[in-house]
Amino acid sequence: MNNLILEVNDVAVAFGGIKAVNGATMSVEVGSVTSVIGPNGAGKTTLFNLISGATKPDSGTILFQGFEIQKLLPHKIAGRGIVRTFQGAKVIKRLSVLENLMLGAQNNPGDNLINFFNPRARNAFEKQARDHAMALLKQVGIERFANDYAGILSGGQRKLLDLARALMAEPVMLLLDEPFAGVNPTLVEKLLEVLHALRTEHHLTFLLVEHDLETVMNISDRVVVMAEGQVIADGLPNSIYENQAVVDAYLGTRKLK
């Protein structure tokens, strides 16, 4: 039985002469939390860009739910249910927090100009989406900023907004790029809580890029280690520590409790 939701097979991409990802192979199981770790410049974010379609691979295939997606445009991939957040959290600063979330609403009739002449359908959807957006803002705890410009949010709040917006897009699989970097410990708790709820209630699949090893080891079902554009290890969190290649490339002699 194949319960892999995502399969990355021998994917490579070069920028100029630099092979950012060089024959990476990995997979993600349905409903799991998989983390990608590795030193800076290992190709983690590039791997994310390849999966989300922002970058096109020079070779290799990426299968999502059995379909090849490596040639699809980013919005098509998002339409299939792979929704990502961004390293450092990207918010649309000159839209309100609520409007940022509303961007995530899928199949909005109002996005189609023809429906300008169908205000009933537009307004009904808009109202429903607004309620859903407010509920999500409440869930991540930034509902009091709903009508403020997103540009006023702090770094951590932007991460929460980025996450809530991704959830608004009804993902099947969430790609989170360094969700915990630069976030204070209480907020990390909050994020973990949200992720846990999503996992148990909505059976989402998660793929993370993260540097905070302790968090990674705690929440991941599987850890993929990248270095120099390749996957050098892939396994259960605990097995990673025993892998000599990982220790050499990333962990060093540092020991975790």
Binding site: S52, A54, L73, P74, H75, A78, G79, V83, R84, F86, K90, V91, I92, K93, R94, L95, E99, N100, M102, L103, G104, Q106, D111, R165, A166, M168, A169
Partner: peptide, 18 residues
């Protein structure tokens, strides 16, 4: 609203399926 988002950034709206 989507257009207003695109005047700042392309990646966010396309990552949301636009």
């Amino acid at each position: 609203r989507v257009l207003r988002a695109t005047r700042e950034d392309d990646d966010v709206p396309s990552a949301l399926g636009k």
